[in-house]
Design a protein around this nucleic acid. Structure first.
Lengths: 149, 149
DNA sequence: TTAATTCCTACTTTTACAGTCGGTTTTATA
DNA sequence: TATAAAACCGACTGTAAAAGTAGGAATTAA
């Protein structure tokens, strides 16, 4: 029941972008360096985020990435579901109706999984990138050199 | 972010036990058959549950398993944590303090993981096997032949 | 004594994760 | 207009955990 590095790296990268790409574009290389993530691997993750419409890119020299929306309009849930798929503990209570088992109507445990999934989504949908930027500033103050997220 | 079959099978087996082993012992074979789980595999899972003190066994012919406590005193959380380990989405906010990263104090995302973990534990600790038996009876009524959990 | 059962250790197969590699395409700027 | 910096792309690889198999030893009711 652990998140994979996709979700963890992805969220860190998005917070990094939210902090450093105010109206400019940031090269993937710099995000990868600051957050200590393999550049090639992060490339694959940010491709998913781009296809989900959460980041925008500019190609070519001096290109890079920036948020596709204001930080306050991007939730942790948007990011995690984009990279991890449904955040429910089992597939049968996720979005995809075809994954419902045929004993669905008689299943007792599905209610447990549903409650867990609902709470997880509630939490992640209630936190925006803006919230995390504020936390970051509160913790790190004016220290320009402090990048850790 | 999915539960493994350990947690899923384990909970099903425990609900099966709660329903069928009122003051008697149930052979693993029967649980495995009803719940459609590999007998040998379930054996490994129930060994964990036994070592956690959630089920008791009697060896030899006519032996079997029964709950170690009344259904109302066993929560879904007890079962899942026993089989899956900590239910937090990342290790650094779990029980084990040695898994905290060294940037802990400056980490913004850990608060997200902590909130998720707290909610998950809140849900699973609020549901007991007794609750699930009641759900089962409500759904399946008097139908003796209906085993699905 | 036999058959049913738990208990135990080791092995195997499959799958997803977490990358790596080697490029092609686009574009600012010198 | 050449060059270097960047995004973009698809295929490959190593590893670890999950999921399940296999075979037998120990225990015990009938």
């Amino acid at each position: 029941m652990k998140l994979s590095t996709k979700g963890r790296y992805g969220l860190k990268a998005m917070v990094d972008l939210a902090i450093h790409s105010q109206d400019k574009h940031i090269a993937l290389k710099h995000i990868a360096q600051r957050q200590d993530i393999s550049e090639h691997y992060l490339e694959q993750l940010i491709a998913v985020l781009r296809k989900s419409g959460l980041v925008k890119s500019i190609r070519g020299a001096q290109g890079g990435y920036t948020l596709a929306l204001p930080p306050k309009e991007i939730t942790v849930g948007d990011i995690l579901r984009s990279l991890e798929g449904s955040l429910t503990p089992v597939d049968c209570v996720g979005e995809d109706p075809t994954s419902q088992c045929k004993e669905w109507d008689f299943c007792v445990t599905k209610d447990v999984w549903k409650k867990i999934g609902d709470k997880i989504n509630e939490v992640v949908d209630s936190i925006t990138l803006e919230d995390l930027i504020k936390d970051y500033e509160k913790i790190n103050g004016e220290k320009e050199y402090m990048y850790y997220i």
